[in-house]
Write a protein that binds this DNA or RNA. Structure first.
Lengths: 112, 112
DNA sequence: CCAACGTATGCCCATATAGGTATATTGTTT
DNA sequence: AAACAATATACCTATATGGGCATACGTTGG
C-alpha cells in the first residue's frame, strides 16, 4: 500500500536505515542500537522490505538486513527538482538566465 | 504533528507542490488543475502550510499559495546521504578510494 | 530430537488521516 | 446591507498505523 516516500516518513524507520547504512545488521543488533522493542523493529523492517528499501539475507537463525539505496532514488529525484528553488548556486544561475532573457527582449526592440 | 517527510508522503500533496512549482496558484486553480474537490485541496494545503512547505498570500477573496522549497531541504539532505550507495559515479569514486586504502596497507607491509 | 535462541506475526487498542458533504468564514460587488 | 464568490472548517465514516504483549515459527547447538 505504501511507497518509499511513506516508508521513510517514519522517523524510526529513517533511524533504522541510518544504522543499516553503516553495514548490514541483524534484528537484535538494531534492537540494541536503537531503543525499540524487537517486534517494533521487525514491523518497521517489514515495511521497509515491502517497498524494497532494505534487503534480507538469512544467516543461521539470524536475519541480516541491508539497505537497498536504489529504492530511495525516486525520492532524491523528486526533491532535486526543487533544489533550484532554495540553492543559492541555482538562484545565481536563474538570475543570469533571467537577465539574459530580458536583454534578448530589449535587443529585439519590438516597439521602441 | 508532522514534518516535511510526512507532508510529501501523500501523492496528492506532491502533485499540489508540483503545480505550485510552476508559480503561485489560488485554491480554485488547483482544484481545476488536479482532479480534487475544493475541501480536499484546502485540507492538503493546510498540512503543507503547517510544515512550512507552502506559503499563503491574500489576494482579494482569493488566497495565493506558493512553494517554500527551503522546507524540503531536510529531505534532500537526508536522502543525499544515500546517493553514494546507488550512483555509479560514487561507486567509481568508492572503488578508487578502496584501492588507495589497500595499496597503503600493502606499502606499510606490517607482516611480510 | 529437544531446548533455547532469533525473529516474525497476530491481536487489541488508541490515534491519525483521507474522503465526502454541509456549512461557516471572509472578502467583494452592487 | 444583501447577495455572492473564494476558501476554510466541522463532522462523519472508513481505514491505516503504531505501540504493547503474547505467541508462533524456523534454526541451530547440545
Amino acid at each position: 500500500m505504501s511507497d518509499a516516500f511513506n516508508a521513510v516518513a517514519e522517523p524510526r524507520r529513517r533511524e533504522i536505515l541510518d544504522q543499516l547504512a553503516g553495514g548490514q545488521r541483524s534484528v537484535n543488533e538494531l534492537v540494541e542500537l536503537l531503543d525499540l522493542t524487537q517486534p517494533q523493529i521487525s514491523k518497521h523492517l517489514r515495511v521497509l522490505r515491502e517497498v524494497g528499501v532494505v534487503d534480507v539475507r538469512g544467516d543461521g537463525r539470524r536475519r541480516l538486513y541491508s539497505v537497498n539505496a536504489r529504492a530511495l532514488k525516486p525520492i532524491h529525484d523528486w526533491v532535486s527538482g526543487y533544489e533550484r528553488l532554495w540553492s543559492e548556486r541555482f538562484e545565481a544561475l536563474d538570475a543570469v538566465l533571467d537577465r539574459h532573457k530580458r536583454e534578448e527582449r530589449e535587443d529585439a526592440g519590438d516597439d521602441v
